[in-house]
């Protein structure tokens, strides 16, 4: 039991760091937004993992079941997912406008164009 007791959290950290790396090591703006999405999903998995109760079932009350998983993380993450896609769309819209204004979405080239002008 103990050997895998924290396995979920460790994988969450691996996913989180993969997303973090995409944000800080890549210059492409769309890749950065995808990295943020990966990071975000890892946080969702962290919350849902915490809400799981051993031997429990989905939190829809019905006869014959007494043990349910914690519904509270589910509520928080449910709204966070939809908010996440809305904010990601806003970020992508900004990337589209930057492409139209600068002709590129590579961070280095944008900075260069800014210093030249």
């Amino acid at each position: 039991m103990w050997a895998f007791g924290l396995y979920n959290y460790w994988i969450v950290i691996v996913l989180m760091m993969a997303g973090f790396y995409m944000v800080i090591a890549h210059g492409n703006l769309v890749k950065k937004i995808i990295g943020l999405n990966v990071f975000q999903t890892s946080v969702f998995i962290l919350y849902i993992s915490m809400g799981k109760v051993g031997g429990g079932t989905a939190p829809i009350i019905s006869e014959g079941f007494t043990r349910y998983s914690n519904p509270l993380p589910h509520v928080l993450i449910l709204t966070a997912i939809v908010v996440g896609v809305a904010t990601a769309a806003l970020g992508l819209a900004l990337a589209v406008r930057i492409k139209e204004a600068y002709g590129t979405i590579e961070e280095d080239e944008i900075v260069k164009a800014d210093t030249l002008s």
Partner: peptide, 8 residues
């Protein structure tokens, strides 16, 4: 789904 969060 495996972690019981069907709505999510």
């Amino acid at each position: 789904v495996v972690l019981d969060a069907v709505d999510v």
